[in-house]
Write a protein that binds this DNA or RNA. Sequence first.
DNA 1: CCTCGCGTTATTGTATACAAAACGCGCCCG
DNA 2: CGGGCGCGTTTTGTATACAATAACGCGAGG
Lengths: 217, 217
Amino acid sequence: MSRASEQAYAKIRAHVLSGAARPSEQLTEDQLAQIAGVSRTPVREAVRRLEDELLLVRSDTKRLFVADWSRDDIEEMFALRQMLECHAAERAAARLSREQIAQLEALNRALKAAIELPAPDVAQFLEANRAFHEVIVDAAHSPRLGQMLAKLVEAPVVLRTARTYSPEDLRQSARDHDELIAAFAARDPDWARAVMGSHLRRAFHTFARAVGPAAGE
Amino acid sequence: MSRASEQAYAKIRAHVLSGAARPSEQLTEDQLAQIAGVSRTPVREAVRRLEDELLLVRSDTKRLFVADWSRDDIEEMFALRQMLECHAAERAAARLSREQIAQLEALNRALKAAIELPAPDVAQFLEANRAFHEVIVDAAHSPRLGQMLAKLVEAPVVLRTARTYSPEDLRQSARDHDELIAAFAARDPDWARAVMGSHLRRAFHTFARAVGPAAGE
DNA sequence: CCTCGCGTTATTGTATACAAAACGCGCCCG
DNA sequence: CGGGCGCGTTTTGTATACAATAACGCGAGG
């Protein structure tokens, strides 16, 4: 995207994710234009993207608010992500090149390195993790699938600040990735799908436990 | 959406779907503004929506073109739709109200009526069919799922003019719907999923046969 | 004759001014 | 005392002018 519109997107996103704007708080285009330092035109463009990514929502009469997700919403998003990403893993198993598999191995090494420092580097872990999953989705060769997943993966990041990543969670993720790589190397779509499924489902429960005391759990 | 932007969307969409603009043809915002009878501002808004719906695509340097789908693209979209809508059917089985099931029955009666006229009314069939699937997706109570499906269901419509609906295809659809209703009435998620799966998979093959001589079929 | 660079033109991106619509508040009437 | 209606204010939507950027053609140099 063009410079102003991209900047507007980045700044507004940061503004929302940083928590400077609280859930359900109203935002006006003028406000956002000021924050982003551009005019309302590119702001409107950026806002549309953020709406699409579910970070912002519109009231019935076009007023803009910071999205506020219920537990059900979060559960729904995880379920969709799981469905789509399992599909991606299945397809990727048949399509990943040797180079891509090597890339996955490298990324998972980086991920483990981020864990085992004296103090685990969560940001670095998240980046390696993101890249890892991205390689898989790309290898699925399904552009619309990628597009859909991008939205779902982005969204929960909002709450990342609330998350407390225990060292054991991080290590388990790394082990899952190892097994995924094994499944890919074996070109076994069923295996890949199954591993991805449990990987994400566990992530959901870890997340849910940290985020709030479930309704009936 | 607001009036001008909505009108731009509708007119541009019609322009593309009618075939007045051929696949891969470049469109300029000025052109489209003239066609829609509004200024470029709402056109840009409409274009973003149509891009999102995959009817229009942008070159690497922001120039706008009418989308041209390969057979792989179409196959991909059907696969995604099948995955998502099977999920919707499964969830709907547990959530559909009695009223909604009655509504499905009514819609399927309308659908059958549209078939059996002296000359089948395809437009009416399509409308009843769309409404039928919409009820199911709504009942799944998964807003993002609905949003994703909307895109996928819209898209293939482009080629609908190319489709020749045989009477037998239409009748088979009606039978599938009957079985879906039975599965819902029995509150059987697995049954619902399975029926939806074969319903959509068959639709894909019918579609593929009509649209082009498959790569290796 | 081909190719690289530059100026021209077409096209998209941004800002700003204005129009339309929605909110909220106070007032009037029941 | 409460509810709805009108009016000023706020917020979003649209048009238009201008800026930036990409495509294209043409001419000079190899």
